[in-house]
Design a protein around this nucleic acid. Structure first.
Lengths: 144, 144
DNA sequence: TATTGTTATACTCTATAACTATA
DNA sequence: TATAGTTATAGAGTATAACAATA
């Protein structure tokens, strides 16, 4: 059980952490090029990259959107030829959405951008500090 | 100038950093109670807390919204009695928006919530690790 | 009938343009 | 005239409910 003084300090540290995390987050968000894609459209690109061709339901579930909203997101992406719809013969009620070549290219650009942003964040740190930071992040983010 | 192997490693570290930062960010966003306030409404609460009673233009500028959008945000907050409008005698074209007592209380709740979230993030770390993390954050976030 | 997805409709958040009141 | 703010209107992104096609 922490002493009173330790507990107080933890509060202060938490406040500072959240402030700094917000600054970092803002850099992260503001620095991201959008490529004219909405947040959901970006998430769709990533989901299809990670999981391959998927049903509307699976996508809707991953994006945290209503199925009807997902229809709209996919419609827009189909119009821009970033994804394709297909009706599989096995169960013709379902729709399978898959990345096109353009979609894959778009996602590659995204990853490259995000990595560049991460490099910019790490740059002010020494190699030892970078490794330490990543280890601390792991410890914070990986807990169940 | 970094060696080729160092440079490669930096890319990988950046990718990992951005992934983990996203996980942390998601916890941060998902964990935040909204108190039924939109992002802009929350930002308004914070701006008024930090700067005191302010004009519509100053608010609009800080929130990064069009003046007309700010009108809508302030309208909603006035309806909920979290802020008040006043017409100063000095220049009756301007409007001064100020927090009410409820608004201040609401903001206090927000801060407390955010701090609790930060405490949760820091909890898996040892006291030494916490201090190290904050120092690293400072170094990353504070650069111009 | 039950399931998968789309269409119809509405609400929130934001913007641009036209307008009002004051300087 | 110029400035501060509001009103009118429109577009993006999301949701719920009704519907169509398939199982």
């Amino acid at each position: 059980m922490p002493k009173e003084s330790d507990s107080k300090s933890l509060q202060e540290m938490a406040r500072q952490l959240m402030r700094d995390l917000e600054v970092l987050t803002r850099q992260f968000l503001a620095g991201q090029r959008t490529w004219e894609l909405s947040r959901s459209e970006t998430a769709l690109l990533r989901f299809l990259t990670d999981h391959g061709p998927s049903t509307m339901s699976d996508i809707s579930n991953d994006l945290g959107l209503a199925l009807s909203s997902t229809t709209g997101v996919v419609d827009a992406m189909v119009r821009r030829k970033l994804v394709e719809r297909a009706r599989p013969e096995v169960d013709r009620r379902t729709v399978i959405v898959a990345l096109t070549r353009s979609g894959r290219t778009m996602h590659d650009h995204f990853l490259a951008d995000r990595t560049a942003l991460g490099v910019g964040m790490l740059e002010p740190l020494s190699p030892v500090e970078r490794r330490k930071l990543l280890a601390l992040f792991r410890k914070m983010a990986n807990r169940d």
